[in-house]
Design a protein around this nucleic acid. Sequence first.
DNA 1: GAGTCGTGGAA
DNA 2: TTTCCAAGACT
Length: 414
Amino acid sequence: MLQHGWRQKSTHGLSRTVHAQIFSRRWRMLNLFAEDEKPMPKASDTGTFDPQDSRNACIGPALVTWFLGHQRPLPWRRHYDPYAVWISEIMLQQTQMSKVVPYFERWMKRFPNVQAVAEAPLDALLQAWEGLGYYRRVHHLKAAAQQIMAQHGGKLPFDEASLRRLPGIGPYTAAAVASLAFGRPVVVLDGNAQRVSARLLDWPAPVKEARSLKVLRQALEHWMPSGHAREFNQAVMELGALICTPRNPRCVQCPVCAWCRAYAAKTVASRPVMSGRPLTEAVTVAVGVLCDNGKVFIQKRPPEGLMAGLWEFPGGKAQKGETPEGALRRELAEELGVTVSITEKITEIRHAITRFRLHLHAFRCVLNPPEQSIRLRVATEGRWVPVDALDGYAFPSANRRLIRLLQSAGEERR
DNA sequence: GAGTCGTGGAA
DNA sequence: TTTCCAAGACT
């Protein structure tokens, strides 16, 4: 149960003396800096961050205090082991907490350290990742692990710049690992931090613009109590995930709503200002379950691009005016160099991926004539596999749904 | 700066 | 049913 931590406690978790030191020092620094600049305009007029605003003093300590009392118990929050923090942050990229936790537990059991990732076959890593999406993260993870073994003696580097050089670690993840695992005084600026800070400032411009990000970062840096980067950064993100949500934020439970400009201006619902999203597109796809002697044919996708390195059933998009059956025949001729007979419509599956809404038509089919050799055109590898053995390969989510159907149909037959 | 790259829960 | 979008990185 979430509560009003800051209202119930008469003092913060940090002492008032510490607060006074923190903020007097920060203000002095900002004042010194400001002497060379033009006078700071009022934030409400121009949409700039005003470090002199009295509301700033309370925000950081209130967030940290709230986090210490309301944080969710997560596996990597026990010891903040750098390897565990790294893995969790990669998994959490564009992926919700509830989905990540079970994957994280399984991953840590199977790959307990950097060396295990560096030495594992890519297929094993992809299988552990199946269903999480953004599979390029796995390729980067393995490359980064090998780099850490070679250049850092198997230990994560502790400074932002070194972390940033590792594949798959960008500005956010470098700051997250540096602050959460190593206590470095850097702010994270993920989607949560952008939303929370944009609301606290009632920021009127699109948050993704470079100009906005610069100001939001400046505000967060000002709010962060020195020596508490780990707690502050997680507090901002935890608040964004639990309270300051994109839709229907729970302002009555928010520990900083007293100092929130959007709340005061009743503009919370229209903050942050988001730029337009790309339009979605409907696509019809034909998928072939090519059967021969109790086995089915699967192929491995190229190491770059969509679903890189995952296995799949052959098939592809239907062109305009083309039936799913026609598309399947054409695709199998193009991808495998064979002609087939379609023996059965298995199912239809609707599935969304990136900006496409897929309508998959799955067919059972056989080679006709039977004696043909498959020549792969796009895939890097092809195999004939018993349906029950498909669990040993990493498939995209829609393919996996089809496999479950095949397996349950096979069981009924027995 | 704008596209690409997954998935599924929530409204 | 459709739309939104989550602890981003890379090109």
